[in-house]
């Protein structure tokens, strides 16, 4: 660290604070801009003059969203998806991680299973064959297509497995002497001591499922089945197309489009709120999870 009180040290410290705070602002301000746009009036949004405070403050966009049935349908599809995926992921993660955390001596087939899992992590059939398989299973346009293909998050299984390996053997041995079965040992010994690690993988699952728009794009043919991010994506793409094609700013004056822009900002804000609600936990557990997961092995 920088020490001392000389003038040059003070200048050095000032420069470091300046750079770090600037980088923080560079991350914050563009996001804040979206919030300001969502609360601004149509004309100001059209002229693209909204900076960091709403211009002609208006909650019209939010009122319109309240009446957008598809937005809320998609929102609840995503909620449903996150809940289902979280439950399935957690159950499969602990059920798989426990036997895999045994040594080869304790569980002879352990390495065979491990190799299969690692191969599934490293190699994939690719987008098209996966699509065809899912289509043959008649899963298209069902909620299950958003949940089941990712039922086994292999990275998380390995993370929890590594965590289980570090649980002191004496805890398990005591339970074995009491006549506990492997399932009882898993739920009464391993899971209670692994809660922080499980929180980490739970958050992986929540964030991944909430943010994913590609499955909806690929597997859903009806807009009414879109999860939230796919729905928002299908809205924003039009205006983005318009803006980037560089054509008319005339077109942008078009009131309908302007409302879209304003409305999209509001939709983005609402769809981000669930993530912001769990953000304190994200920060706490992701950071420890990442550090433990990658530094360890």
């Amino acid at each position: 660290m920088i020490q001392g009180n000389s003038l040059s040290t003070k200048i050095g410290k000032f420069i470091i604070y300046f750079i770090v705070i600037s980088l923080g602002l560079v991350c914050l301000l563009p996001l804040w801009n979206i919030v300001a746009i969502s609360f601004s009036g149509g004309a100001a949004v059209a002229a693209n003059i909204v900076g960091l405070t709403p211009v002609n403050f208006s909650t019209k966009a939010y009122e319109m969203i309240m009446e957008d049935a598809q937005f809320w349908r998609s929102f609840f599809i995503s909620v449903q998806r996150v809940v289902l995926a979280l439950a399935i992921n957690l159950i499969l993660i602990v059920l798989m991680a426990y036997p895999l955390s045994k040594t080869k001596r304790e569980f002879k087939s352990r390495n065979i299973y491990m190799n299969i899992i690692i191969f599934a992590m490293l190699f994939s059939g690719g987008l098209i064959p996966t699509y065809i398989v899912i289509r043959n299973l008649n899963l298209l346009d069902t909620i299950w297509v958003l949940v089941l293909p990712g039922a086994v998050p292999i990275f998380s299984v390995i993370l929890i497995m590594n965590f289980f390996v570090g649980v002191p053997k004496s805890l398990e041995e005591a339970a074995v002497i009491d006549g506990a079965s492997p399932l009882q040992i898993l739920f009464k010994v391993y899971i209670p001591v692994s809660l922080p690690a499980l929180a980490t993988v739970a958050l992986f699952s929540i964030v991944g499922n909430w943010n994913d728009f590609m499955s909806g794009l690929i597997y859903m043919s009806q807009v009414s089945n879109y999860p939230i991010m796919t729905y928002i994506q299908s809205l924003t793409i039009d205006i983005a197309e318009l803006v980037r094609s560089g054509t008319s700013s005339d077109a942008l004056q078009n009131i309908a489009e302007v409302q879209n822009r304003n409305l999209n900002a509001a939709k983005i804000v609402i769809s981000t709120i669930p993530l912001l609600l769990i953000y304190p936990f994200l920060q706490k557990y992701f950071v420890t999870g990442i550090v433990v997961g990658s530094v360890k092995e």
Binding site: L23, M229, I232, A240
Partner: peptide, 16 residues
């Protein structure tokens, strides 16, 4: 603040 964008979807960030 700087960790936040990591958790947001590209659908949202593309708009940004």
């Amino acid at each position: 603040i700087v960790y936040l964008p990591h958790f947001l979807s590209w659908v949202v960030l593309a708009t940004v």
